[in-house]
Design a protein around this nucleic acid. Sequence first.
DNA 1: TTAATTACTGACTGACCAGTCATTAAATAA
DNA 2: TTATTTAATGACTGGTCAGTCAGTAATTAA
Lengths: 218, 218
Amino acid sequence: MVFSISKPEPSSRWKRRKEDRPEEILNAALELFTEKGFAATRMDDVAKSAGISKGTLYNYFESKESIFHAVVQEMISPEIEKVETMVANYKGPTDHLLRQLIRAWWTNVGETRLSAIPKIVISESGNFPELAEFFVETVVKRARRLFTDVVSRGVVSGEFNLVETQAVARLIIAPLVYATIWQHSLKPFDDDYLSDEYVDLHIKFILKSLIKDQRFDV
Amino acid sequence: MVFSISKPEPSSRWKRRKEDRPEEILNAALELFTEKGFAATRMDDVAKSAGISKGTLYNYFESKESIFHAVVQEMISPEIEKVETMVANYKGPTDHLLRQLIRAWWTNVGETRLSAIPKIVISESGNFPELAEFFVETVVKRARRLFTDVVSRGVVSGEFNLVETQAVARLIIAPLVYATIWQHSLKPFDDDYLSDEYVDLHIKFILKSLIKDQRFDV
DNA sequence: TTAATTACTGACTGACCAGTCATTAAATAA
DNA sequence: TTATTTAATGACTGGTCAGTCAGTAATTAA
């Protein structure tokens, strides 16, 4: 007689869980996209990571790209809305608002798994242009408008110097997005580390150039 | 009798041009890497674009990655050396040096085809780590040291405020590199355009925060 | 002129992977 | 209990591509 260690027979080979699948798929996908990029992520792995087979994936999403669209739509759009609301309702001085806005971005995007998304989109923009177009329309333009509006508010109210608001908005955004790109690309190969000072110093530099010199104001 | 339009018989099917091949291959490769990225560039296309067959490619370079290494080595390193020399020999005021350094970077990298390289490396860092490591060692660290040294010079000489030189160097580089990444990724999908003011304003903002306030100096 | 060398070619191999679909079985209705 | 519906499976298809190598022809040496 042969003694064999038998695996406990699972009560059933699988469960039907229509409700939970989409979210589980999106979470698995974002994690893999972050790690490998869009093109290099295999649908078999997304499926495995979400605990299903590849065929099931295609019951819920019609293609790899549609999964990415959903990730952006479901995860980033809500964050932007939050911030838009914050800006719309803010009453205090504009430099405080701007400071708070930059910090909010850092806390809600820069330090979360969402920080991987800009790098993914940028990386794949050449081979998946629809994906880039979607991201520009859904995220980039809205975010830029947000910063442009805040700078404009400061200029109009007389708190800030007269500046090119578009160019300034870009100068504010650049070091923030750049930091996330770096995090998800070269950081592992770079022994230098990004201190918290980076964002603080960025805020300080930007405000120093924006806020009117108080010497002659009374 | 059949009249046929005969192609002029080429005197020979191909020429042996050992000397010129490597450079032609690197040029073709950089162009395709820029357009499609590293992974998505097919060796058949590099060959075709360089006017040879795929087999010949492998007489000159042992792999796709080795071609990329050669591109960085041959094209970027000389640029960095130029700038290092400029910095080492500069005698005038540090703010002029910094201004000139940023402009030099923009002219010699930002506005040339070399501007594509950061985006390529970042995009492929996950799937081709050796490539990223090579780039960090060969380019990133040297460039950062350059800017850090210049800021330090200003601080030591008393021209600049006492600042975290590492963090400041990053803040200087970020908008520059970010602009090149944007150029080669999202720009085609973004109707907003990058005006020349962007770099000028960046220089202005940075120097405003670095240069000591002259009010109490005589 | 003939032989030896080597730059060059391109068909081929093996590996990879997005998306499909015939089949299976869990859940639910009759 | 039996029939119906549908969530889930995974083998398979058709396509892609880095790298190889046996053979071809341009060049050079003998």
